[in-house]
Computed example of a mutant assay.
Amino acid sequence: MTEFGGPEALRLVDVPREPLGPGQVRVRVTAAAVNPTDTYARNGTYAQRDPVKEFPYVPGMDVAGVLAEIGDGADTDIHAGEHVMGIVVPTGAHGGYREDIVLPAGSIARVPDGVGDAAAATLPMNGLTARLALDRMALQPGQVLAVTGAAGAFGGYVVQLAKSEGLTVVADAKAEDEQLVRDLGADVVVRRGEDVADRIREQFPDGVDGLADGSVQDAAVLPAVKDGGAVATVRGYRGDGQRGLRVSPVMVRDYAEEHAKLDRLREQVEKGEITLRVAQTLPAAQAAEAHRRLEAGGVRGRLVLTF
């Protein structure tokens, strides 16, 4: 994008090739996932919190493609020519929507066996955010976790990761998404909405042990959690300081170079513990259309741009 604005602010441009430094790798990108955070960067929502210092600004936090080059001292056992997926922390022209990108070696992992690049590109950012949320809450097997926005990418990964770790999961869904959320592994499904905390309490009168708020309802969902429980939020909300709740805003950049975490997600995909969902692929030149579809709502799985 060369300015803030609607989807039409996205246009194809040529940018200089990034230099490859020590400890870095170059990836020839074949697929880049489209996430809500990309649309907020494009329309200027994040401009005050994280000012854009230069245009063109390239959004995108997930890529997959071919490892093209390895810099001096890069700590990786992946070889040039292998297919990899990676997480990108966008800065200026350094964002996922580009066909050639340089990343820290710790930001990539092999693409899961049997998985194409488009599907692999849907995993790094949301998968690592889900992993970080669960790590921050530090719940134990047998405890109860509530997940809002469970049909979304982040929420879906939280449900599946939580189930793989022995947690009981109560999740929200619209009527048309209820079967999807059950298929992801939720033990109990309640109808989503402004009163979701009440619906969760109907099922668990003492409150849940933890809550991952993928629907970004912030204070509205806190009543679902028992005193002293844990909450993970994704847009910086820090809680109201009441009832001893441990509210942790999760920022995926904290895990952006945690290769072992990303590689573990790869293993879980291969074991069938995590499901990758692609809604549709579009050529990179149709990035504006991808943003329009995402902002219109109702997309399940991720739209993916292909190069």
Rank of each mutant, 00 (worst) to 15 (best):
P19D: 12
V25E: 01
R26Q: 12
R28T: 14
T30G: 14
D38E: 04
Y40S: 07
T45C: 00
D50L: 15
Y57C: 01
Y57A: 04
V58E: 01
V58H: 06
P59L: 02
I70P: 01
D75Q: 13
T76E: 03
H79Q: 14
H83M: 01
E99P: 07
D100W: 09
G106C: 09
I108Y: 12
V111M: 10
V111E: 10
D113T: 15
D113V: 12
V115G: 08
G116W: 07
N126C: 09
L128Q: 08
A130D: 03
L132V: 00
A133D: 04
D135H: 09
M137E: 00
L139C: 05
Q143W: 05
V144K: 12
G156V: 03
L161C: 08
A162Q: 11
E165M: 12
E165V: 07
E165K: 12
V170S: 08
V170Y: 06
A171W: 10
A171Q: 11
D177Y: 07
L180M: 12
V188L: 13
R192Y: 14
R199I: 06
V208Q: 10
D209H: 15
D209P: 07
A212E: 04
S215R: 06
D218W: 14
A230I: 05
Y237N: 02
Y237L: 02
G239D: 10
Q242M: 09
Q242V: 11
R243G: 03
P249L: 11
V250Y: 07
M251N: 12
Y255V: 02
H259P: 01
H259K: 14
H259T: 12
L262M: 06
I274T: 02
L276F: 06
L276K: 01
A279Y: 04
Q280E: 15
A290I: 04
V304C: 02
L305T: 04
T306R: 04
